[in-house]
Design a protein around this nucleic acid. Sequence first.
DNA 1: ACAATTGTACGATTCTATCCGTACTATCAA
DNA 2: TTGATAGTACGGATAGAATCGTACAATTGT
Lengths: 103, 103
Amino acid sequence: MNDHHPTREDLRLPDILLALGNPIRLAAVKQIALGECICSDFVTDVSKSTMTHHWRVLREAGVIRQRPEGRVIYMSLRQDDLEARFPGLLSAIFCADNRPGTA
Amino acid sequence: MNDHHPTREDLRLPDILLALGNPIRLAAVKQIALGECICSDFVTDVSKSTMTHHWRVLREAGVIRQRPEGRVIYMSLRQDDLEARFPGLLSAIFCADNRPGTA
DNA sequence: ACAATTGTACGATTCTATCCGTACTATCAA
DNA sequence: TTGATAGTACGGATAGAATCGTACAATTGT
């Protein structure tokens, strides 16, 4: 696995917003926020390789951390880093009053 | 001018994040947040027609409102609508600890 | 009426994202 | 060692985004 994670200092707001500005990734991040999970915990309409792409976008933006262990990869939200750099951002996104179809 | 603005109820979080997930648009929105302005108030590296494109993306996502008056178009942030649907989102974005190059 | 100003519309180009299938790697269990 | 499992990597197709230049429309000032 290519496992580059940006440091806290290197997090960039536009990259993070772009990463979260996709319904599949936003839904995935919301699920990860409920607790660490592995790829196969996600039910989506897209293929495995497409999800790999989405995980990479989220990881490279610094939204999630991927931790390989055995043959699975645990994914978690980089809540502390995000809160340090962008206070309130995650909670605003998770508490948003979403309508159907909004993911 | 094509002047469709989504209603408050039709605002979609992924669309808004996507609209803000571009450095040029994020910078523009930050400037608009300081007070209503017109297109020519913005100094950018891109052409006029490219900016027209960015204004459209922001307007169609519901981030800004465009109000034509005479030969200029006043642009303002849809702060009330955004706060109603996504409380705290804008302030989190504007208060973010940005680094150089982050726009 | 004319010219200047402010911005849009359109078409073309280039770049980036999304998505899939297939092939592959690594780990684990029997 | 063999097979199953979990996921990545890569190449290619399609779609969408960003950008520009040119042409245009509306308004305003002379």
